[in-house]
Design a protein around this nucleic acid. Structure first.
Lengths: 218, 218
DNA sequence: TATTTTTGAAAGTAATACTATCATCACTAA
DNA sequence: TTAGTGATGATAGTATTACTTTCAAAAATA
């Protein structure tokens, strides 16, 4: 994780880990705009200034959580593809991991991955939809997303070296892996996903796998 | 336009039109979070409560502006496809209109379409990425987006009645028509668009036309 | 001219996003 | 053992935001 994401590394101290744990719970519950450091401090029985010693502001905390998620996903994709040689298979597995339902990873006891996944779906676009996006990008706050996009675009390039838009297609894939689930939950007329009795994760995987492979097939 | 979008119709009065005109200018310049009704009132030499008589809050004003944009686009697509019989051609034209650079439409003198387009690219997702999305949706605040999605999905269905995900594909298309431009501007490693000397609108159109037609081709 | 509607001016409120100051406590180094 | 350092928490304060209330004046309408 880029050290620009925090003032003091929250994984290193008891208080830091508590901040991560409870902020995930509270952002999931309240939504990002109603979540405040004051409420967080009250809930963990600490003080507002203590939290500001870890994160410059709540936007940075959100960026940290989303970056954590993308790092975690990249690690899972690396793990799942490690003994796979064929790029078609690697790409397929990457799409599987992207679209899978997310459950508790026992390696990280202070992170509730299921709640974090809901935050990613509902809030992650807010990390970059700001006027300071260019400054934040220069500081390397979005490396997690960009690195995973690059990796999967690499598989696309191996499947079809002639395809002209691997990064654009993969950023589309990564966005839609989450946005289609949001639509299915809240604006269901925008998607077929969730309208049959097939489970939403499987259907989303089928939709995206089909779209990606047909688009790059030659 | 759904009358739930406003308290008093802003198109009907001098002050209302001024609110639309100057809010577009200010949201474009400041970004949505730094834009306030107080600043708007100062700039148009009116008073804060006067603006609250037109829009419940600044979120509703943003939703109104984005809805206006989708209505305008649907009108332009209807106009451009009116004498076209072949659904392939209709779909192609819809993608063209979606991805076109947007310039002043003299029919609407108080709306700066180029500035509004930048707002759509940078801020439109914030209309629904809120905890009240379900209430807002019930009130019909997102009908503009949904109606256009339905129309274009209808073309998709005519091109290939067997394709399983027309709405999901079209919502993907509509989102990416804007998000790829944002990436090209601010996170260029996520897309090929803007990396050659081909103009971004043309390249985005090619990327999306290719993706959509390959995906639904049978 | 009378009346209703729309607007603007002024002030107020609760909450937010911080910041500053300071005492305390745990840990470490001499 | 003691002195010093760094992390924490308690308290309070500031500027700004997102509204709301009240009221008088101006404009539109009947």
């Amino acid at each position: 994780m880029s050290s620009n994401l925090y003032l003091r590394d929250p994984q290193e101290t008891e208080l830091g880990r508590k901040i991560l744990e409870v902020s995930i719970e509270m952002i999931d519950e309240l939504g990002f705009e109603k979540f405040t450091f004051r409420k967080l401090a009250a809930k963990i029985e600490s003080a507002e200034p203590s939290i500001y010693r870890y994160f410059e502001n709540k936007h940075r905390l959100l960026v940290y959580l989303i970056a954590w998620y993308w790092n975690w996903l990249e690690y899972r994709i690396d793990f799942s593809t490690q003994n796979i040689a064929k790029p078609e298979k690697q790409l397929k597995i990457a799409i599987d991991v992207l679209t899978q339902k997310k459950e508790k990873d026992l390696l990280f006891p202070s992170i509730d991955e299921a709640a974090l996944y809901r935050i990613v779906i509902a809030e992650s676009d807010k990390t970059y939809l700001t006027k300071q996006v260019d400054d934040d990008n220069k500081e390397g706050l979005f490396l997690g997303f960009k690195s995973l996009c690059k990796k999967i675009a690499g598989y696309v390039r191996l499947v079809n070296p002639k395809y002209e838009f691997p990064h654009a297609l993969v950023s589309t894939l990564m966005q839609m892996a989450h946005q289609q689930l949001f639509f299915s939950d809240h604006l269901p007329s925008l998607t077929e996903i969730g309208t049959t009795n097939e489970n939403v994760y499987d259907m989303n995987r089928r939709f995206l796998t089909d779209m990606v492979f047909k688009t790059i097939d030659n």
